[in-house]
């Protein structure tokens, strides 16, 4: 697990920002002895949300909407791949 304060100081991210992400269900944080930790599998998502917020000036509502749409895009891409494979199956018959 990664201490949240270490992440925040190395990436110049406010701790309040990652707490807001957690409150809105975008990431999961763990608190042990009042110290906040980031789960390693959340790191890539957290970095992405930080870039969206700090580099592109997108607020939390925007991040939520983008995250939702990106997940849908990913699901659709998965469906496209599956459908392509099925089409290939019938075309090769």
């Amino acid at each position: 697990m990664i201490p949240a304060d270490a992440f925040c100081s190395s990436r110049h991210v406010d701790i309040s920002f990652i707490q807001l992400l957690q409150e809105n269900g975008l990431i999961e944080l763990i608190t042990i002895d009042e110290k906040i930790y980031i789960l390693p599998d959340q790191l890539l998502e957290l970095e992405k949300f930080s870039r969206l917020h700090y580099d592109l000036d997108i607020n939390l509502a925007g991040i939520e909407a983008i995250n939702h749409l990106l997940n849908r895009v990913q699901d659709m891409q998965q469906s496209i791949t599956e459908l392509r494979n099925r089409l290939r199956f019938y075309e090769s018959a």
């Binding site: 190395s10 990436r11 110049h12 991210v13 970095e47 930080s50 870039r51 580099d55 592109l56």
Partner: peptide, 11 residues
């Protein structure tokens, strides 16, 4: 722009 932060430009 972006300072020393690990920004999208870096990424």
């Amino acid at each position: 722009f972006g300072g020393g932060r690990h920004s999208a430009e870096d990424e």
